Computed example of a mutant assay.
Amino acid sequence: MSAKKNNFGKKVLVTGTSTGIGRCVVHALMESGFTVLAGVRTDADRKALLQTQTDCRRLHPLLLDVTDDEQVQAAVAVADQLGGKDGLFAVVNNAGISVPGPVEYVPLEEFRRAFEVNLVGQLRVIQAFLPLIRRAKGRIVQVSSALGRLAMPLSGPYASSKYALEGLTDSLRRELRPWGIRVSLIEPGSVSSAIWEKIDAQARAIQRALPGEMQKIYAPLAEPMTYIWKEAELRAVSPVIAARAVLHALNSRHPRTRYLVGPDAYAVAALSRLVPARAMDWLLKMFLRKVRSSKC
């Protein structure tokens, strides 16, 4: 029997589907026979998503800001009505934002925003939808990042929120195991997405907000890191690869606990596992110095 027939009737909620990985996950799930509840931030995003599908009977775009309790509860009501006694087969927690900048000067409200979306928002969705997932004996897929294993300079708010998400997901996976609910993490490296434009804009805004003295102090980090981000964007893999990992996590009888996406994600995982922290600090310092001297 084909995967499409096996998945017919199964309902999956995906958050953050306006662009990038989330949008590709929606397409992959639709092609595999799932009924998809797709969380978007605006009505324009909802209309754009519908236009990408020729058969929209199994696609249900929802206005879903993961930081908004009312929108989350409204989405639960829709999922409950669609799923009925079968419940919700899975949640794919993909919504997330990037907040770059030096820890010393990143505005606290921006730091809180990173955690509110990347950690608390995911938890809000899990707590709200878990009763429906229990009904289906379903699955949870969390989209994290390679930076949830190895934090780079000027990525403190984002990386720390992803580190926290990794710990939360490990606890959740072990807590839900007795009920047969599978929990997986997707750890993408550089993936083609509109997030790169947002990172550039945020980085420029934060740099402009730094006092002149601090701009000089952090220039030796900011200049090579900006170059590294640009290079990472050029080498980014297609979000389709991340969507395939999500599909495996949903379809496999024995899904992995973690899925690495992209060659840089595999490199980061190996480095974080094999290289001691002090050695990693030294290697990174030498690498940034080399980049700055040759490219900046």
Rank of each mutant, 00 (worst) to 15 (best):
I181V: 14
R177V: 03
G167T: 12
R177F: 10
G156T: 14
K162V: 07
Y163H: 15
A159G: 12
S161K: 06
G167I: 04
Y158L: 05
P157W: 03
G167L: 04
Y158M: 03
A164R: 05
M152R: 08
G148I: 00
Y163G: 01
R173N: 05
S144C: 11
E166K: 01
L176K: 09
P157F: 04
L176R: 08
L150P: 03
S155C: 14
R149E: 13
L150V: 00
E175M: 07
G156A: 15
P153W: 08
R177Y: 12
M152H: 03
L147C: 11
Y158W: 03
R173C: 06
G148V: 01
P153K: 09
L168S: 04
P178A: 05
A164V: 12
L172V: 10
G148E: 08
R149Q: 14
V143W: 00
S160Y: 06
L165F: 05
S160M: 15
V143D: 01
G180H: 12
R173K: 13
I181L: 10
K162F: 01
L172G: 07
R173S: 12
A159D: 13
L154Y: 11
G167W: 02
D170F: 00
G180N: 11
R174L: 14
S171N: 13
G180C: 09
Y163V: 03
L150Q: 12
Y158I: 04
T169K: 00
G180R: 13
L176G: 12
S171H: 06
E166V: 06
R173I: 08
K162A: 08
S161C: 11
K162H: 07
L147I: 14
R177L: 14
L154G: 07
P178C: 07
S155D: 14
P153E: 05
A146G: 15
L172C: 10
L176D: 04
R149S: 08
G167F: 02
P153I: 11
T169R: 01
P153D: 09
L168E: 02
L154E: 13
P178E: 12
S145Q: 09
L147D: 06
S161W: 08
A164N: 08
G156M: 03
S155Y: 14
I181A: 07
A164L: 10
G180I: 13
G180T: 09
R174I: 02
P178T: 04
A151R: 12
S171V: 14
G167N: 09
Y163K: 01
R149K: 15
S160Q: 11
Y158D: 06
P157D: 08
L176S: 06
A159R: 03
G148Y: 01
A146I: 03
T169W: 00
G156N: 11
G148N: 10
G156Q: 10
S155G: 09
L154K: 10
M152K: 04
P178Q: 07
S161M: 11
R173F: 06
R174D: 12
R174W: 03
I181N: 05
A164F: 07
S160W: 01
S155I: 00
L147S: 10
S155M: 14
L150F: 14
L168M: 15
A151G: 15
L165W: 06
R177N: 07
E175S: 13
G156E: 13
A146K: 05
S160V: 12
Y163S: 00
L154Q: 10
G167H: 06
S171A: 14
S171K: 01
L172H: 07
P178I: 05
E175A: 13
M152A: 13
L168K: 00
G148D: 12
L172K: 05
